[in-house]
Write a protein that binds this DNA or RNA. Structure first.
Length: 847
RNA sequence: GGGCGCAUAGCUCAGCGGGAGAGCACUCGGUUUACACCCGAGCGGUCGCAGGUUCGAAUCCUGCUGCGCCCA
């Protein structure tokens, strides 16, 4: 036991010892029911750790430590999400490179120096070189993350790690995909797809967001037979050459005569039908819309439901295609189209408006508006809709099952379930899982190439599960040779990779060793807990439920906890761009891990929490206080084996602590760690301020006999209990103090249980506090030391109250330095305490 | 436009049908042998607004306002 206990240095000492002693290693011997398994969110390796991570991961660790002490074998793995776009972007920016899939692999490629200045032209590298850079950089990032987690004191079993791009994840993703394919739960289709022209990839419904975007209504005339004009209004005049129909609501009186007729598009001179469809909004624009290939999802709906032709003009690069679409074949039309070829959407719009103006078909000037437009959440240009071949996983047809699973899951807090339900009910199609990117899990598929050199997508060649993972761009399918790649009569690999979520939706399966470690899987799956942010309910939580439903026909976990966000002091969501320079490691060093964890523990599930260094200071104070209180308690001689807790105040204190144990346990079982900490903390502080002061003299007594034995035993009993109650929250200071008088780790000690038959302790403890407070107030009011002698204390109260106080009279008198403490029974409502201090104010002079 | 959450002392928050509370901050005081990273005391609030239910509402219901988020 150190002379002056300190928090400094505890992290280094204990983190190392926990690792050496395997304190948190998962034994893997218990049956499923005696295991608590956690589906830890794999942090995005390419991002930086911020205080929000520290916050939410601490919450999970508190639960993990509690469950471990309750006797569960805790399966607490850690994953790293290094798969996908964020890593690609980081690698591009960090090294100043760009992936060019057409380049051959360069085996001698040297790792580029990190880019320090902006505006340097990126260097093209082959796909394989690019992937190698991704792997290298993420490995470094992951090491830095792990160092922070270890210092924070996460009780992760570091033997169980995975990465979402690693071999195990690739195998699981590909195996699960092949099985879905076999069950027809996965399919490919050539279909209109939301497309980000910046990233040049398809995006899924879950990755969309609406942004207010400026645009303008353009009123344009179409030409009906004779000289009649039909006016439509559109925000996307550049799609005029892609127009395939005009559409109005079937009930719209204004357009009844036109239904079934055709009109001619201005400038481009294409005959298009006027049709009726209920999705047309009568009160929007002119009430009649031009349907194009494709301006928005309504256009897609019309195209599909009305069997319209497709006139594609926008390519995957977001520019107007070189070839005019079928149906646009008049000389004037082709001439106009030629002026648009190669133009971006933005430029094409200006040119079409110019053409319309010249032809007199633009009615009035465009009217500027701002309206919601769909964006890829990571993109900066409005999404286009292009037709392409993509892979989908069926989800729309499983809506009812998914809602039932949502109802089966325990949500913390419960109201977060509404977001899941909203999302599942609002699904508008199947899950698009293919991405036209590079750093991801490839689809394990090849296609035969026919004699014309065209891939036969309808005859995919599949690997066997035993061969997984495979990369169809380098591996050769059975029965072919490498020379036949991309040759007529040969084969070609599917060029796409899976969306990141298609892999991370399998984290329970990956972590639990699905199809790779049957023993582990049986002991850990389905898991107990999925902690995650509420912002990714529609992505991660939803997709994980879907995958477990389709593969295992079960929920992937029993509970989910949704953590809130960290708000900066201005109540805004905290972000790097706000220039906040606090790094998690810096905080841990400044305040200590326990202190930062204390702050984190103040954030309840689902509740946004302010970043508050004040709370960290309080946490630091609490942890320091714990060290000092323990040193004090352990400074007294050990009670003899025969010692019993006999004194009323000691018994009351332990009884009150029993209540705290009860409440804390109940709260932690319900994932309400904040309540648990608050109860324990409140008790601990009262224990220090009142109980310790009341019993000090009795504990110090040289030949105090049974009364001294009683308090010494009570002190140690209480300390033992409190250390264990604090252990999940303040693992370092709890472990340090535990080590002063115990073998083994407090984190493997048994969670306290209330002692049987204990009476009500709160009442007597409260009475003791009331009396001692009155004495202190008298001293404070007369600005005297707490040490000053008190001549008399006269307490008047109801008989039962007075009787209770009588039982602790001696402790009260000693602690207050009271010469005469008398009790009077009286018929009064409130306790009346009269305190008379000794005369001589300058008592201290005698020392 | 639909939905969810929040609104309590200067700040951060607890309380969620019968006393308006904690910590921080602030003020005053204290060399008490665990702790000055300490101890004691005090100041401080029409519990967002308006109705309703109830013997009784910060707490339940309705509406409104403001903030945040989710979905269209």
């Amino acid at each position: 036991m150190p002379e002056r206990p300190s928090l400094d240095g505890l992290e280094a000492t204990w983190a190392q010892r926990w690792e050496q002693q395997g304190t948190y290693s998962f034994p893997g011997t218990a049956e499923r029911a005696a295991v608590f398994s956690i589906d830890t969110p794999p942090p995005t390796a390419s991002g930086s750790l911020h205080v929000g991570h520290v916050f939410s991961y601490t919450h999970t660790d508190i639960v993990a430590r509690f469950q471990r002490m309750r006797g569960k074998q805790v399966f607490y793995p850690m994953g790293w999400d290094d798969n996908g776009l964020p890593t690609e972007r980081r690698v591009q920016n960090y090294y100043g490179v760009r992936c060019e899939p057409s380049l051959p692999y360069d085996a001698d490629f040297a790792e580029p120096e990190p880019v320090t200045k902006k505006g340097v032209k990126p260097v093209d590298v082959s796909r394989r070189n690019f992937v190698e850079l991704c792997e290298k950089l993420t490995a470094e990032d992951e090491k830095a993350f792990e160092a922070v987690w270890r210092r924070l004191g996460l009780s992760v079993d570091w033997k169980h790690q995975y990465t979402t791009i690693g071999k195990r994840s690739q195998r699981a993703s590909q195996r699960a995909f092949l099985r879905l394919l076999a069950k027809d739960e996965a399919y490919q289709a050539e279909a209109p797809t939301l497309w980000d022209v910046g990233f040049r990839t398809a995006v899924a419904q879950a990755e969309l967001e609406d942004r207010e975007h400026p645009g303008a209504w353009h009123r344009i005339s179409f030409h009906a037979p004779g000289d009649a004009k039909v006016f439509i209004e559109t925000t996307r005049p550049e799609l005029l050459p892609a127009c395939v129909a005009l559409i109005a609501h079937p009930d719209d009186e204004r357009y009844q005569p036109l239904f079934g007729t055709t009109v001619r598009t201005p400038v481009f001179g294409v005959e298009v039908p006027v049709l009726a469809h209920p999705a047309a909004e009568m009160d929007r624009g002119a009430g009649i819309a031009m349907c194009c290939t494709f301006g928005d999802l309504t256009d897609v709906q019309w195209w599909r439901e009305l069997s319209l032709p497709a006139r594609t003009i926008i390519g995957r690069d977001g520019r107007v295609l070189a070839d005019a679409p079928s149906g646009l074949d008049s000389p004037e039309g082709l001439k106009a189209y030629a002026e648009l070829v190669g133009a971006t959407v933005h430029t094409a719009r200006e040119r079409v408006v110019g053409l319309l103006r010249d032809s007199g078909d633009l009615d009035g000037e465009p009217r500027k508006i701002v309206r919601p437009v769909k964006f890829f959440e990571k993109g900066d240009k409005p999404l286009e809709i292009v037709s392409s071949r993509q892979w989908f996983i069926r989800s729309k047809s499983h809506q009812d099952e998914l809602l039932a699973r949502g109802a089966e899951l325990n949500w913390h807090p419960a109201y977060m379930k509404a977001r899941y339900d909203d999302w599942v009910r609002g699904l508008n199609g199947d899950w698009l899982v293919s991405r036209q990117r590079f750093f991801g899990v490839p689809f394990p598929i090849w296609y035969p190439v026919d004699d014309q050199g065209e891939p036969r997508h309808d005859q995919p060649i599949l690997p066997t599960e035993a061969d997984l993972p495979i990369d169809p761009s380098s591996d050769v399918p059975p029965g072919y040779t490498a020379e036949q790649r991309d040759q007529p009569g040969g084969f070609t690999g599917d060029p796409d990779v899976m969306d990141t979520w298609a892999t991370s939706s399998l984290t329970p399966q990956i972590a639990c060793g699905w199809e790779e470690d049957a023993d582990l899987f049986a002991r850990t799956f389905p898991m107990d807990l999925r902690p995650q942010g509420h912002d990714i309910i529609r992505t991660w939580l939803f997709s994980t439920v879907l995958r477990a439903q389709l593969e295992q026909d079960t929920l992937p976990w029993r509970h989910t906890t949704l953590s809130g966000w960290i708000l900066d002091p201005d109540r805004k969501k905290m972000s790097k761009s706000k220039g906040n320079v606090v790094t998690p490691m810096g905080l841990l060093e400044e305040f200590s891990s326990d202190a930062v964890r204390y702050w984190a523990a103040s954030g309840r599930p689902g509740t946004d929490t302010a970043f508050d260094q004040g709370q960290m200071k309080i946490g630091r104070r609490l942890a320091t206080k714990l060290l000092n209180a323990a040193k004090f308690v352990l400074g007294f001689d050990e009670p003899t084996a025969a010692a019993e807790v006999t004194e009323p105040l000691d018994r009351a204190m332990l009884a009150a602590l029993d209540d705290v144990v009860r409440q804390s346990t109940e709260a932690l079982e319900a994932f309400e760690y904040t309540t648990a900490l608050e109860r324990t903390e409140r008790f601990f502080w009262q224990f220090c301020d009142d109980y310790l002061e009341l019993v000090k003299d009795r504990a110090y007594a040289k030949d105090g006999g049974a009364a001294t034995e009683s308090v010494r035993l009570a002190l140690r009993t209480a300390l033992s209990t409190m250390l264990r109650l604090f252990a999940p929250f303040l693992p370092y200071s709890a472990e340090e103090t535990w080590s002063w008088w115990h073998e083994g780790s407090v984190h493997l000690a048994e969670w306290p249980t209330p002692s049987a038959g204990a009476g009500q302790g709160d009442e007597l403890m409260a009475l003791a506090s009331t009396v001692i407070s009155a004495v202190r107030k008298a001293k404070s009011d007369s600005k005297r030391s707490m040490r000053v002698p008190v001549e008399t204390v006269v307490i008047r109260g109801r008989q039962a109250t007075v009787d209770a106080i009588a039982r602790i009279q001696a402790d009260l008198a000693t602690a207050g330095n009271v010469a005469s403490l008398t009790l009077e029974a009286a018929d009064v409502d409130a306790l009346d305490i009269a305190v008379t201090l000794a005369e001589q104010p300058e008592q201290s002079a005698q020392r």
